[in-house]
Design a protein around this nucleic acid. Structure first.
Lengths: 334, 334
DNA sequence: GTGAAAGCGCTAACAC
DNA sequence: GTGTTAGCGCTTTCAC
C-alpha cells in the first residue's frame, strides 16, 4: 500500500506537511501543495482510513440500519442515504435488523467498533434501549420514532396521510372501512391508525374495533388479516392497509375470495411502488417520498455531526394518489 | 470508549494478555482467560476494529458493489451476502455502481482505503480495468463475468435458462420470437442471447437480426424496445426479455398497444419477482436463485480469503416457471 | 503463560 | 509554512 510517507518522500516534504497539503490545503504554501498533490496522484495514493480514523477518533463513516432491505421502500431510503453520504465523502455501513431487536443490537455493537461519526436508524420496538450501545453518537431516526428523549427524527406526516386516504373512502360513501394496522409498538403504525380514526370522526362514523386488525408489516400477515376481515358476516366495503407489504397480501386475499376491486371492495395502501402502479386495477395509495426521506435524514445527520443546531423533528408530507382500486360503495345488497 | 487497557487493568493482567485471552484463548491460562472475559463483559468492551485493522493490515470487512440496489434481484443478492458475512463475523461495505464504471471506480477507491479482506462485485462494462485499484484483493464476480483472467465468478447458467424459455415458446408454435437483450458488453446479456439463438436453432428456426433489440437493463429501455418490435408490420408473436426491469417495460408497452397477453402476445421475463407473480396475467419467467447466489458468492470469497483452493467458476441452475403470460400462437391472421 | 516494547499510517501539538 | 514528536488502540515479536 502506498502510504503518506512515500508521497512525502517523493514530494520532498515531511509526512506532516503532506498530510496538511491533502487535508488542510490552506495551511500550506501553494507550491508545496502542488508538489504533494502531484506525487499523490502519480503514486495512486489512497489514504488509509483506518489509520486516520484511529488517530482522529472517528472515520468518515456513518451507520445505517434499516428493518428490511428487500422492501423497496427501505431500499429506496437506503439509496437516498447512500447517495447523499457519498457526495459528502462519507462511507455508509449498512445493516439489516429484519425488525428483530436482537439483530439491531448486534448491528449496533459491530458499528460501534467502527467508530462511526453518526447513525441513521429505522427503529425497531427496542431501539430506545439498544441505542445505549452507541451512547452519545449523533443519531437520526428515520420513518419511525423510537420514543427516545430528544432524538432527532425524520418522518412523514402519517396522521394526515392516513386521514386523507380514509376521508377519500368516506366521501365515496363507504361506511364500513376496515384497517390493517401495523404493530402498535411502532410509532408509524400508531399514527396511521390515528389518522384513520380522525377520518372516521370527521365523517361522523363510529370507530369499530372489530374492523381493525394488527399485522407485523409483512405480506403474509396482510393476507391473513384481510381474509379475516373480509370473511365477516358484514365485511367492510373498503380496506385501508398500513404499509406496502401488507397491501400485497390484502390484494391477494381479495383475489382469493373472488372479490372485484373496486366494485366489491375498495383498497388503499400506504406507500407507493411499481407494483402498486402496474397491478390491475392500479392501486390508490398514500405515497411517501422515500428517496427524499433518505436524503434528508442524511443531510440532517451530517448537520448534527457538524454541530449545527437542528430541529428535533422533521416531517415530510405524503401525497394521496387516486388510481383504480377505489370506487363508490355498492348499493347495499338485500 | 472502553479499550483493551481498561479491560486488562480490571482483570489485573497486561494488555497483551488481555488481547490473547480474547483472540487466541489457547495461549492463555484458563483462569486468566475467564477473568479477562468477565472484565470485558462487565465493562461492555467492544474491540476497536480500526486499531485492529491498522495493526493486522486488514479489518474483518468485505466490500460489495452491486449495480442497482433498487432492483429486487440485487437487493436479494445483497441480503444473501450480508447474512452470510455477518454470520462469519464479517462486516460488509456496500456500494452502488448504478452501472456506471466511474461510480464503480470511486467505490473501489473508497473501499481500498478501508483495507477490506475481499470483494464481491457485480461487474460493469469496465470492471476489468477498475479492479486494478484493488490489485491482489481476493475477489468474486457475481452474476456476470468481467472477463478478467483467472477471476472467480459465481453465476447462473444463463445459456441454458434462456434456451429453455425460448424452447417453451417454439414448442407452443411461435415462429417469430423477439428478444430484448441487454447490453452486449455484459456477459450475462451475451449468454442469454446465445441461449435464445440455440433454442431457435434447435427448433429449426432462422435467426433474424431484426427481432433482437438491445436495452440498457432498465425499464424505459424495455418499453421502447418492445414498442419498436411490436410496431413492425410483421410483429413477433412472443417476446423473451433479458432482465426483470426491462420486462416491466415490455409489459407496459404491450398494454399501451392494447395487446392481450397471452392471446396476442406471449412474454417471458428473466428473473422472477413478486411483481411477476402477482401481475395479471402472472408472468412466466426464468427464475434465478438470487439469495443463494449472494450466499454462495460470500462463502466462496471467505474460502478464498482463507486460502482454500477454490474452483474458478461456479454456475447455479435457473428454473423455468410457466405461468399465464405464455400461450399457443394465434392462428395466423390473413 | 505472561509482560514489555515496538509499530501499523496517520494527524495534532508544538517548536522553529 | 514546515518539520519533529508523540500517540490513537491494538497485536505481535521477543524476552523471561
Amino acid at each position: 500500500m502506498i502510504g503518506l510517507n512515500e508521497v512525502a518522500r517523493a514530494a520532498g516534504v515531511s509526512p506532516a506537511t503532506a498530510s496538511r497539503a491533502l487535508h488542510r490545503p490552506e495551511l500550506v504554501a501553494l507550491r508545496t501543495r502542488e508538489r504533494v498533490e502531484q506525487a499523490a496522484a502519480e503514486l495512486g495514493y489512497r489514504p488509509n482510513v483506518l489509520a486516520r480514523g484511529l488517530r482522529t477518533r472517528g472515520s468518515r463513516t456513518i451507520g445505517l440500519i434499516v428493518t428490511d432491505i428487500l422492501n423497496p421502500f427501505h431500499a429506496t431510503i437506503a439509496k437516498g442515504v447512500q447517495d447523499t453520504a457519498e457526495a459528502q465523502g462519507y462511507t455508509v455501513l449498512m445493516f439489516n435488523s429484519d425488525e428483530q431487536p436482537g439483530k439491531e443490537r448486534r448491528a449496533l455493537e459491530t458499528l460501534h467498533g467502527h467508530l462511526p461519526m453518526g447513525l441513521i436508524v429505522v427503529p425497531t420496538a427496542q431501539t430506545r434501549e439498544n441505542l445505549a450501545i452507541v451512547d452519545g453518537l449523533p443519531t437520526v431516526e428515520l420513518d419511525r420514532a423510537s420514543g427516545k428523549e430528544g432524538a432527532h427524527t425524520v418522518m412523514v406526516d402519517n396522521v394526515a396521510g392516513a386521514r386523507e386516504a380514509v376521508t377519500h373512502l368516506t366521501e365515496l360513501g363507504h361506511r364500513r372501512i376496515g384497517m390493517i394496522a401495523g404493530q402498535q409498538d411502532i410509532s408509524t403504525a400508531r399514527e396511521r391508525l390515528q389518522g384513520y380514526r380522525e377520518a372516521l370522526e370527521l365523517a361522523g362514523l363510529p370507530y369499530d374495533d372489530h374492523l381493525v386488525l394488527p399485522g407485523n408489516h409483512r405480506e403474509p400477515d396482510g393476507r391473513l388479516a384481510a381474509l379475516r376481515l373480509l370473511s365477516k358476516r358484514l365485511p367492510p366495503t373498503a380496506l385501508f392497509v398500513g404499509n406496502n407489504e401488507m397491501t400485497v397480501g390484502a390484494v391477494l386475499a381479495a383475489r382469493e375470495l373472488g372479490l372485484d376491486i373496486p366494485r366489491e371492495l375498495s383498497i388503499i395502501g400506504f406507500d407507493d411502488s411499481r407494483w402498486a402502479q402496474t397491478m390491475s386495477p392500479a392501486l390508490s395509495v398514500v405515497s411517501q417520498p422515500a428517496y427524499a426521506l433518505g436524503q434528508l435524514a442524511c443531510q440532517h445527520l451530517l448537520s448534527v455531526i457538524a454541530g449545527q443546531p437542528m430541529p428535533e423533528s422533521v416531517r415530510l408530507p405524503t401525497q394521496f394518489i387516486q388510481r383504480q382500486s377505489t370506487g363508490p360503495v355498492m348499493t347495499v345488497q338485500a
